[in-house]
Structures are given as structure tokens and as C-alpha cells.
Design a binder for these strands. Structure first.
Lengths: 238, 238
DNA sequence: CGCTATTTTGAGATGGCTCAAGCTATGTGG
DNA sequence: CCACATAGCTTGAGCCATCTCAAAATAGCG
């Protein structure tokens, strides 16, 4: 096994802890392999456990009474999730489904609370992390309230690219199975509109898509759409 | 002057501190009267100061490049704001404007950080508060992504009623000047649609509105609309 | 090699926005 | 105290971006 602190130091949450204290944190954690499709917890369940993803990809969704699903966040390696509930109120506000196989570290919520009282820096770090999430969520609210679907899809893609994109020759590949329906639920639209948008973009050479696969050929083109700049190459399109 | 801890104990942030420690916190704070229209800070300014509102009402908005404004939150007495930025990154992500005159307590962000290291419970409390905000923001994202304008307006009103509503005979009065434009920016729509919606609701006896004034006559009616229950009294309306 | 999940495309309906214009309180200065 | 200005509210007409529903094409998977 590699250095046991490897995964922990990767997370901002534990960044300014001394190695000795990291041991204490690690000792309280458990390790689990997770597979695509696994549901780690469901919206409404009592929240006891805090997760950290070390490999893979997890999708956090909320399901409405009418069955419509909204993706609130894609979680990548090094990120914490579920903690937000386990430290706050009693229930998970979202459902966590594994989008790509990987591995998690888990803590008992109470144990983590105690660690935080002992190591206030963890609490402060956690606070900063959650604050970043607030900013991100606020940004999405503003987007949903003011932007058109095409711009929102562009932004959703760029966000995913930043998180799980890998540079390959010819563009940036989103390294996780991402269906058009997933993307629609992330951008707050329908799979039909995503499909049509992709068709247009493909004609303009901005993306290349396949079954659950997206390759961004022109990040600049996407940015331009996201920022609502006049798209000089074809102003009348759309 | 009344008991000096009065305002502090009102805030959940300092709830489980001993009186002696409260003194330390209060010593680091400054008090200011604020008037309607005052801008406490603007989006993009470097964030040094954390605010707590003890009286009045403050509106937090984000303004888009195109000039459109989105209301992200109404802050009522006892609530903290700005802290989210002062503890995290360097800039305020929103603009804070006083919607109703009142009074603030302010701290220097660094000073509060130090208080948190000294009293980890404050950090944990803060974490819980921010977590609550995350839940609220997530809820709004789901709303914006899935609900119709009428439902969103209903929910926006109910949220405001919970925060600043006062029971009067005949209903619940929102105790702050609230224009239809404000409400539109809060619900993610236009003032025209809000006006039309109010007209319908008024005909159905659900609300009573005046210049910057909203009285909710039938909270149940509003809830029904918010939950998208079939409105039995007039299913074909709208 | 057939089954199922994913994607595409068409046609049609519509919710909500935009723009334009008039209306009505509220406050202000003469 | 009145008349005028201003901010807020209402209403109409038209449009169009996006959703809905239906159906076919495609691509993996077992």
C-alpha cells in the first residue's frame, strides 16, 4: 500500500494538519470500493456518514415529487460530500449515485464533529469549502434565473470539463459516462433540447459527441456561447 | 443600554458560548445604524467585514453584465451576512442593500477567524449555518429548474412570510417594503408576470397587494399553488 | 442477434417574455 | 394646498424559445 496519507492530503479539508494529526483522522475513516450505479445514500435518509471520494465520480441529485430529477453536483476525487448533512440537520437532502466506479473514505459524522472540536483548523477549512459551494450554487441560481438554455448547457459542460476533463489531442474529453439526459438534468432543461443543441454545435465544430461521451473541440467556442458573446461565425444560427 | 449580550445571544452563531466568552466577541464588534437604500458593500469589492443584522432588512443581489439583477437572499434580524466572503475568498460575491432601516454589528473578518480558532464551537455553529444556506440554495435551484413561474412566486412569498411575516387580522403581512420588481428578481421572473399573477390571485382572494405591500390572505391557498396541487376552485384558470 | 438504453428529429402547443402604453398612488416644490 | 413629477403597478398584443409528445434511428450489451 502507498503512503497512507496520500488520499487525505489530497483533500483541502485536512491540508494544514500535522502528519501525526492526520493519523488520528485516518484512523477514524473506513475505506470502500464503489461501483457504477451504486447508491450511497438516498434523499431523506438519516445522515450519519460523511464521504470523501478518492477515485471515481459521484452524482448528487434531488428528485421532485413529480419524478423529475435535478443534478445538483458532480463530485470528483478529493471532494467531500454528505458531510453537509451529517454535520447539519438529520437528513441527506440529496441522493448520491456512483457515476463512475472508484473508492470512498467514510467517517461517522459525530466522530468528525469531535475531530473538528479538537482540530479547529479542520472546521475552518470545512467552512471555507462549504462557502465555496455557496458561491457555486449562487452562481447557478443566477444562471437559471437569467440565462437561456444554450448558455446554461455550455456552462454546465465547461464546469464538468474543469472538474473531470482531460486534455486529449483534438480537445478536452469529459472523462465520465455522461448521457444527454444527465446533462439536461444538470443544466435544467430537457434531453431533447440538449440533443438539438449538440447537433448545432457539432455542425459548427464546437463539440463531438457519442453515446454518453462528450469531447469539447473548441473550449473557446463554448466560452463564447456561455458568455453570450455574439458568435461571429454564424450570428443568425439559433 | 439594555443587556449588552442581547443581540449576540439572538444569533445562533454564538449560542453555546459562555457569557464571558460572549464579552470577547462583543468587544471585537462595532455597531452601526443603517438606512433604507444604504449599500453596505458591492459585489466584487474586497471582503474584510462580516455583518450581523440586529434590526431591519437587507437585500443581497447579484447583478449580471447585462444589467439584470437577481435577489439571492433577504437577510433579517439575527442573521449573519458577508461573512461567507470574508472568511473565504477575497471578494464579496453579492451587493448588500438595506431594504428597511435598522442596525448592524460588524466584525473584521480576520478577527472573527481568530475567534473561531479560539472558540471552535463558533466555527462549528458557523458551519451549520452555512450548511443551512446550502440546503436553501439547492432548493431554489431545483425550483428554478423544474417549477413554473406561478409556483416560484408563491414559494418566494411563503419564504418571505416565514422570515418577515407578521400575523395580522385577515392574514400575514410582509413587513418590509417589497415591490413587484423585487419579488420578480427574487423569483426569477419579470415584474409584468408578477403583476399579472397578483391580479389573478387577488381575484381568488389569496392575496391583497398595494404599493410595495403584500398581505397574504390565504397561506393555504399559496401553499397549494406552491405544491402544484390542483386548485379545486378553478382548475382551468391560468 | 435480439433487446434495451440512448439519441435524433419532427410537429405542435404554450408559458412567459418583450415592448408599448396607460394608470395610480405618493411625495414635492411652488 | 394644489399640480406636477416620479416610482410603482396594470394591461394588451405579439412573439418565440423551449417544452411536450410521438416516433424512428442508432448503438451497445448480454
Amino acid at each position: 500500500m502507498p503512503h497512507p496519507h496520500e488520499h487525505l492530503t489530497r483533500s483541502p479539508l485536512f491540508q494544514d494538519l500535522a502528519p501525526h494529526d492526520l493519523d488520528a483522522v485516518l484512523a477514524a475513516a473506513r475505506r470502500h470500493a464503489v461501483r457504477r450505479g451504486d447508491v450511497l445514500f438516498r434523499q431523506g435518509e438519516p445522515a450519519h456518514i460523511v464521504y470523501m471520494l478518492t477515485r471515481g465520480e459521484v452524482k448528487l441529485t434531488q428528485i421532485r415529487p413529480d419524478g423529475r430529477e435535478v443534478v445538483l453536483r458532480y463530485v470528483g476525487p478529493g471532494e467531500i460530500f454528505g458531510g453537509i448533512a451529517a454535520l447539519g440537520h438529520g437528513e441527506y437532502p440529496v441522493t448520491a449515485e456512483v457515476a463512475e466506479a472508484g473508492e470512498t473514505l467514510t467517517w461517522d459524522g459525530d466522530a468528525l464533529s469531535r475531530l473538528m472540536e479538537r482540530y479547529p483548523r479542520i472546521a475552518l477549512r470545512a467552512l471555507r469549502l462549504v462557502i465555496d459551494r455557496v458561491h457555486e450554487l449562487q452562481e447557478r441560481i443566477v444562471e437559471l434565473a437569467t440565462q437561456r438554455v444554450e448558455q446554461r448547457i455550455a456552462r454546465a459542460l465547461l464546469r464538468l470539463a474543469r472538474k473531470t476533463g482531460r486534455k486529449v489531442q483534438g480537445g478536452i474529453l469529459i472523462e465520465m459516462p455522461l448521457s444527454e439526459e444527465d446533462l439536461a438534468e444538470f443544466a435544467g432543461t430537457t434531453l431533447y433540447t440538449v440533443s438539438r443543441t449538440f447537433t448545432h454545435w457539432e455542425e459548427r465544430g464546437i463539440v463531438e459527441t457519442g453515446r454518453e461521451r462528450v469531447l469539447i473541440r473548441s473550449p473557446e467556442g463554448l466560452e463564447a456561447i456561455a458568455e453570450d458573446l455574439a458568435t461571429s461565425d454564424n450570428p443568425s444560427a439559433f
